[in-house]
Design a protein around this nucleic acid. Sequence first.
DNA 1: ATTGTCTAGTTGTCATACAATCTGCCTACA
DNA 2: TGTAGGCAGATTGTATGACAACTAGACAAT
Lengths: 207, 207
Amino acid sequence: MTLPLHPVSAVGALADALRRRVLSGEIPPGTTLPEQELSALYGVARPTVREALAVLVHEGLLRRERHRSAQVAEVTAADLDDLMFVRRPLEELMATSLAGRRVGEADAALARMAALPADAPWSEAVAEHMALHQALVVAVGSPRLERLYGMLAAETRLGLVRLRAVYSDRHVLVAEHRDLLDAIGRGPGEAAREAVAAHLDHGWGDH
Amino acid sequence: MTLPLHPVSAVGALADALRRRVLSGEIPPGTTLPEQELSALYGVARPTVREALAVLVHEGLLRRERHRSAQVAEVTAADLDDLMFVRRPLEELMATSLAGRRVGEADAALARMAALPADAPWSEAVAEHMALHQALVVAVGSPRLERLYGMLAAETRLGLVRLRAVYSDRHVLVAEHRDLLDAIGRGPGEAAREAVAAHLDHGWGDH
DNA sequence: ATTGTCTAGTTGTCATACAATCTGCCTACA
DNA sequence: TGTAGGCAGATTGTATGACAACTAGACAAT
């Protein structure tokens, strides 16, 4: 078995940097991102920029039309509804096929989230939240499920900023996910599925 | 309402051409596709080739590692299992949310499939089959479901060649899909979901 | 048999250039 | 005054050429 280590390519690094800036809100929705500007800013060639932008477009973070600069996507209420609409069956699939197992990585993420100081920025809680869900998906062991979920992950995270109000008390966020992991670990599949459904329902419907 | 006409870009056209050749089996799995060669063959610049390859990689038709030529993906039995694993919840979602509606486009595709002459190549039946499922997904009206399904569609089609034996009698294929569309059109959601589950089960499990 | 080295081929990235196209503004005309 | 037409600037789509980085395979040395 070979251990995978990924030497980061220029496009990967650039995509990461942009993704971070968009998700942190540093670059607000609607902002245009001319290729030339990015090329000069990061000191890379324009083809490299183009590839990085293509990655983010595939993730749903950016939108692009012919002969228009790429734009940071605006996440509307309708987009959030649609996101939930497709996330639900995937998360349910995850929960049922994981039922009866405890996922160490997810537990670890939950522990980190619970240990965050009270004044830690919301973005850190969001990051651990994503790590938790990501760990669950990876644990299923389906490369395609992982790919599909990855496509939705960035958009989900972008939309999560809006849910900040719902989870004003961070303990609720922690408790809710502890319940979720417990339900999955305990099994059976049906209970796990209901738990994930309940999880998705909360903080939805109003936004 | 503006009619959408798609001015095909060079990368789009190239991606289409390659996709067609791969799906038709003209380029068998495992074949390497050096960028330089494609660039010369189609008379386009290498960056254009790179972008087109990236599209097909995202669709799962090609695989690429660092500093290696792109390769036509081999679809193993495990891949087919995994594909079915993630397709099931998405198709079920489609069926339940479409329950009670008849989708004209899907009916049309079925009619075209039924009208194919007995000696028509299998690839045409496959094409109509894909068009039928695509029409159903589009009818749901969820852009994200459409995107996710699109990612799986190419791979599904690549794997469908293996199922040729299962559907040696084409009437079975037609009848099965007619049942599916009827179940969806009749509703309720539960029945539609069972129909799609039954559809996916057939021709699976053995490959 | 293992390791070091070399070579050929391919990709990753860069720099530059030009054509196609969109946008906004400005002008001419009704 | 308002609208259509056209021009200039900006930006993308694509092409060309080049070089560095990397992989793989062969071969020599230990």
